[in-house]
Design a binder for these strands. Structure first.
Lengths: 110, 110
DNA sequence: TTGACATAACACCAAATGGTTTCATATAAT
DNA sequence: ATTATATGAAACCATTTGGTGTTATGTCAA
């Protein structure tokens, strides 16, 4: 389960605006490639590539249903991002409280 | 104030592993470019470019101090990411809420 | 079985990305 | 004033990225 020599990680996957749009599309509905493609001004092949990248980053997964392949969100993976973010959260919280402190206690470089 | 035709947004900025390392380095200390560079196996110019990109995304800011330019984290910008993430949070945090959402917005094909 | 539909797999291409080296400019220190 | 330090900026390059079109394969319906 840990043998993934992934080419694309979550950070790269969400870097592209089109892929973020795809994620938004899949937020509620499971959709086949053609359906997804119909929302974008580009070829089905292009969207298929984006889906492949999202899939490699485990942000979506595809299930074959008949001749379709339905893609759905894999929201657990967003946790990875959240964890990364939470490390920095302390710093902006700190900064805000520090700003508060500065404003309240001292207003300059006397 | 909203005239920024940014070339790099937050998502692109954090897509690169080196840039994420830079952010980590700057988490606690304000540092000049040379100092930062000393932590990486690449040229100062390369790091300068990364800093420029991080700066354009408002993840860091640089202050000139003498002949140095000190870069520091600008943690407020991470909020943008957090907001984006929070949209998807409902889908993984609590399966009940997802179920609830699906049931309520029922657009099923039955 | 034949035809239409949905996707997969290539090969190809222009532009962006991430790095390099070299040269120029500003500040500090002697 | 000269030299060393810190950064900025430009030209260049290989690889990756994001798109294209074409062809092949699998599945559903007549």
């Amino acid at each position: 389960m840990s043998s993934s020599a992934q080419k694309y990680d979550v950070f790269q996957a969400i870097a592209d605006p089109t892929r973020r749009e795809v994620l938004k599309l899949l937020a509620h509905n499971e959709l086949p490639i053609s359906e997804i493609t119909s929302h974008f001004p580009m070829s089905r092949t292009a969207i298929a590539k984006h889906l492949h990248i999202l899939s490699e980053a485990n942000l979506v997964s595809g299930q074959k249903v008949g001749r379709e392949k339905r893609y759905r969100l894999q929201p657990e993976t967003f946790q990875e991002l959240k964890d990364w973010l939470s490390y920095y959260e302390q710093f902006w919280n700190n900064k805000l409280s520090m700003l508060k402190y500065v404003v309240e206690s001292d207003n300059g470089d006397s």
